[in-house]
Write a protein that binds this DNA or RNA. Structure first.
Ligand SMILES: [Mn+2]
Ligand SMILES: [Mn+2]
Ligand SMILES: [Zn+2]
Ligand SMILES: [Zn+2]
Lengths: 138, 138
DNA sequence: CAAATAATGCACTTCCGTTGCATAGGGTTT
DNA sequence: AAACCCTATGCAACGGAAGTGCATTATTTG
């Protein structure tokens, strides 16, 4: 897939072998993944390299970090036209307590949050825990 | 303050010396505090005892844990009539990126969250980051 | 090819939360 | 008072995960 190389190059990331594999992995998964997930998937690779790969992806804007409250940082690819940095375009994340998977919910925007006077919101993290659609239909 | 003892006893917590001091500390602080905060405040006390004290308070329902996204668990006393366990009564938390303090925003309820079909929400964690009222007025 | 630059791999650290276990305290029973 | 019980406490150690330092390897550039 030359597509993968294009994605990386377009975002000023050198398309190394490892990076292409990690990108592939992220594309295939439809859920947010942790460093350990990637590590387990690529058996003979180094954790640090994967760690830095994931962070490079975040810095360069092709994926975003997710704090789903589990204490384990998750990563997911950004959608087209995603502006993770900008408050107005943030989406919520859903963490299923049954299958333990975390997904981006991009269909619905985060509703406007009311704050007391003189508070300035710069960023919002909204995590909903519960039962996901898959687990609910079993 | 015999008040403190009453609070603990009323919640089936034996009012030991340490617990009274920690409760006092929590009452005085208007912001969420971390284990390290308590540890630093009571110089010659043991980290584990404080850790278990804070968790006892949470288990017995007089305070709640806060995951504000900093990676450090915070604790704050529940308000009167607080039902932290129940989804509908949750409040949002605000983390100031300037003074690094986290506060409970109990004035406003968390707005209803829309989820895709077949998703069941059991719990919501909403953390807003930005500039707090105090820092904004300096 | 040589030099510069960037990515990788290994070891190690730090931070925080958590647990095991032995001891001390406080109240109750004999 | 002594023996007893149950809980709280203190010390030590563990564990997971994020992050760093540095030497090595790969890749680009002159
Ligand atoms: Mn997402
Ligand atoms: Mn709160
Ligand atoms: Zn699920
Ligand atoms: Zn502030």
């Amino acid at each position: 897939m030359q597509n993968l190389e294009k994605i990386l190059e377009h975002n000023h990331i050198k398309p190394t072998a490892m990076r292409l594999l990690v990108l592939q992995f992220l594309l295939n998964k439809k859920v947010a993944i942790s460093l350990t997930d990637v590590e387990n998937h690529f058996d003979q690779s180094d954790r640090t390299t994967l760690y830095r790969t994931l962070n490079t992806f975040v810095e360069k804007g092709i994926s975003h970090k997710i704090d789903d409250g589990t204490g384990i940082t998750k990563y997911a690819l950004c959608e087209e036209n995603c502006h993770c940095e900008i408050d107005t375009d943030l989406h919520l994340h859903f963490h299923c307590t049954k299958c333990n998977e975390t997904v981006c919910i991009t269909e619905y925007k985060i509703p406007p949050i009311h704050l007391p006077k003189d508070y300035i919101a710069e960023n919002v993290n909204l995590v909903v825990k519960g039962i996901c659609e898959k687990c609910n239909n079993k």
